[in-house]
């Protein structure tokens, strides 16, 4: 028997979508191993965890404190480690989000156990078997984990949430007293809140083909027309100062796997592809029919983006009845 601890994420008291993916990944392991899935979530009082049972949580441990509304590395790690040590868990599963990428190493370090980070596929064979991209996605390693417990973070947007109704019995736990040597004091939100590239189901990215920063409005308008879309950027335009680093997609930016990725005036350098090649559907608009981006694209239009993009935006608006 092997139980799995799924670490859920909340923001503003609501479970984040990625939590369902974590539960689905945890369920994959627990079902194969004949175990149960406990979920743990930290936050301020009143986090709504009612959705967790529907995606496979047998039990939901809620660690509440007003000091935990923002991600605080030390108490978060302490609570997860305490829970892991209190039960018989084969694996701790988190999402490789900004929080998970900070938290997973802490948990593995404290438990002195192996960590498989940013995993894109999971099986069970006498223990978890985790696949993860290496060399920025240029190779995929299949890893056998033999230590129990172990820590696994899963890449967002890869594990499709599967409904799987379980009890989801809620149980409250008090946070342990931890000294905060590092304290998150605030989250600065950008003035115009758009979806984050790493989370959005659709990403429209622009590159140097846009010629100048001003012209990014073409990309923004297309994203607005599509709805549910984030704006991304190549490194060339981030380095040029047209866009913020938060929007950069690629090896030294974010890794994204949206349902739809639209590359506008982006050549498709290997470092850019590293960040978006696992997108479900890729569309490229480029005037150069030899641009490498077309090699990874499902659909391409060869042409001047200044003509193609406004037309595309218009047709999508028509389609959406606006």
């Amino acid at each position: 028997m092997a139980n799995v601890l799924a670490v859920l994420e909340q923001r503003g008291g609501a479970l984040k979508q990625v939590s369902h993916e974590v539960l689905t990944a945890a369920r994959t392991l627990a079902d194969a191993a004949g175990g149960t899935v406990d979920a743990i979530v930290l936050g301020p009082g009143g986090v709504d965890v009612s959705g967790a049972g529907g995606y496979g949580a047998d039990r939901v441990i809620v660690v509440e404190s007003d000091d935990l509304s923002l991600y605080q590395p030390e108490p978060y790690a302490a609570a997860i480690v305490a829970q892991t040590q209190s039960g018989d868990y084969a694996a701790v599963v988190l999402a490789a989000t900004a929080m998970g990428k900070d938290l997973a190493p802490r948990v593995a370090g404290r438990l002195d156990c192996p960590l498989a980070a940013d995993v894109t596929a999971l099986e069970w064979n006498d223990g978890p078997v985790a696949s993860r991209p290496l060399y920025s996605g240029k190779a995929i390693a299949k890893l056998q984990l033999t230590a129990s417990p172990c820590v696994i973070s899963v890449r967002p947007n890869v594990f499709n949430p599967v409904e799987n109704a379980r009890d989801g019995t809620e149980q409250k736990a008090a946070p342990s007293e931890t000294e905060l040597r590092a304290r998150t004091v605030e989250i600065k939100e950008p003035e115009k809140a758009r979806l984050d590239v790493a989370e959005a189901p659709i990403v429209v990215s622009g590159g140097r083909g846009l010629k100048e920063a001003e012209n990014f409005k073409l990309v923004e308008e297309l994203a607005d027309a599509l709805g549910n879309a984030a704006v991304g950027a190549s490194r060339a335009v981030v380095d040029a100062g047209w866009r913020s680093h938060a929007e950069q997609v690629g090896q030294t930016g974010k890794t994204v796997s949206p349902q739809l990725y639209v590359a506008v005036g982006i050549s498709g350098a290997i470092q850019h592809l590293a960040g978006m090649r696992t997108s479900k559907v890729i569309v490229a608009i480029n005037k150069d029919s030899d641009a490498p981006i077309f090699k990874v694209s499902d659909y391409g239009i060869v042409g001047d983006l200044f003509e193609v993009v406004p037309r595309l935006t218009q047709e999508i608006k028509n389609l959406r009845g606006g």
């Binding site: 991600y71 989000t97 900004a98 590092a182 304290r183 004091v185 989250i187 600065k188 984050d196 989370e199």
Partner: peptide
Amino acid sequence: EIEGGVEVVEF
């Protein structure tokens, strides 16, 4: 940087 914002951390 976190999803949709920037965390400020003192240490």
